[in-house]
């Protein structure tokens, strides 16, 4: 059995990517299973999705804690201790990372022993689809890595996207982008990671309710988290065009636009999530969007 885990941010398409891979494998006659993990989901928050592929009926369910292949759809997740995308990766495993950087540099920077493949699929999606929706592309990358066929991938993308959209043009562009990623990557022989970390069964100790009730007694128990690294685009102001109408300040859902001494708005880039609502709402078209690449 091959176990693939996808990491992305809400809205990037990790769930559909896991489905594209699952369906492609299913179409080739494998047993397949796919599954997203989301709770209180929201756009931009880290999410994970899983695909299992096997020649025999699959007797495993739930999260994959020791994957053979990991697909990281957003490089910034590598720095996020809660998303922890590389957890459970063995030396024989393989990580695909969506980044502008080269595999060797990524291996060094994040101290990864396993095999690494990289490709800037955000750029490919912007070029072909015009927006950073990565589901078909990450699904295409994963399909190549686990050695599925191009024809299965094509059919899988068609099926999965037909569930979401009736726009034929959009489906065709997604197929094109998906196949592009498929062809840009080598297929790799992956050894299934069969090791299982063991932890002994223990006897639960009793603890009084001042400890064992589900309450939190400490104030400010969540570490301060900056959300600026979620951005794919960054809003940039043109003060020549800005009329100081303050619409952008009002509309920013994260309250991160402030006003400088001359009365012009500017964004707190440490927290701006790059949703571009400000740019859409600006009546003077004074805010433009710039692609953000993750520079070290």
């Amino acid at each position: 059995m091959l176990k693939v885990r996808f990491h992305g941010r809400g809205g990037q398409g990790a769930k559909i990517a896991s489905r594209v891979l699952g369906t492609a494998a299913f179409l080739e006659g494998y047993y397949a299973q796919d599954f997203p993990l989301y709770g209180a989901e929201r756009r931009g928050a880290p999410i994970a999705a899983f695909t299992r592929i096997s020649k025999e009926p699959i007797l495993e369910r739930g999260v994959i804690s020791e994957p053979d292949v990991i697909v990281v759809m957003d490089e910034t997740l590598l720095d996020d201790p809660l998303a922890n995308p590389l957890s459970g990766l063995g030396k024989e495993g393989l990580v695909f990372i969506n980044t502008t950087h080269k595999a060797e540099d990524i291996k060094k920077r994040y101290r990864i022993d396993a095999n690494v493949l990289t490709l800037d699929i955000t750029k490919i999606s912007l070029d072909i689809l015009g927006k950073p929706i990565l589901s078909a592309l990450a699904g295409g990358a994963a399909s190549k890595i686990v050695r599925l066929k191009e024809t299965s991938l094509k059919e899988a993308v068609t099926r999965e996207l037909s569930d979401i959209t009736h726009e034929k043009g959009l489906i065709e562009k997604n197929i094109e982008a998906s196949i592009y990623c498929f062809n840009a990557l080598p297929s790799v022989l992956i050894k299934s990671n069969a090791s299982h970390k063991k932890s002994d069964v223990i006897t639960m100790p009793f603890e009084a309710a001042d400890i064992s009730s589900p309450s939190v007694t400490i104030p400010a128990n969540t570490p301060l988290k900056k959300t600026g690294n979620w951005r794919i685009f960054k809003p940039v102001w043109d003060y020549e065009l800005c009329t100081k109408c303050m619409t952008c300040v009002m509309r920013c859902p994260d309250g991160c636009i402030r006003v400088n001494e001359e009365g012009f708005p500017y964004s707190d880039y440490e927290n701006c999530k790059g949703c571009m609502i400000c740019a859409e709402e600006c009546p003077a078209k004074a805010i433009r969007k710039e692609r953000e690449v993750h520079a070290w």
Partner: peptide
């Protein structure tokens, strides 16, 4: 929930 409700299989 989750283990079946959101899990796809053939």
């Amino acid at each position: 929930g989750f283990y079946l409700s959101f899990t796809r299989e053939p």
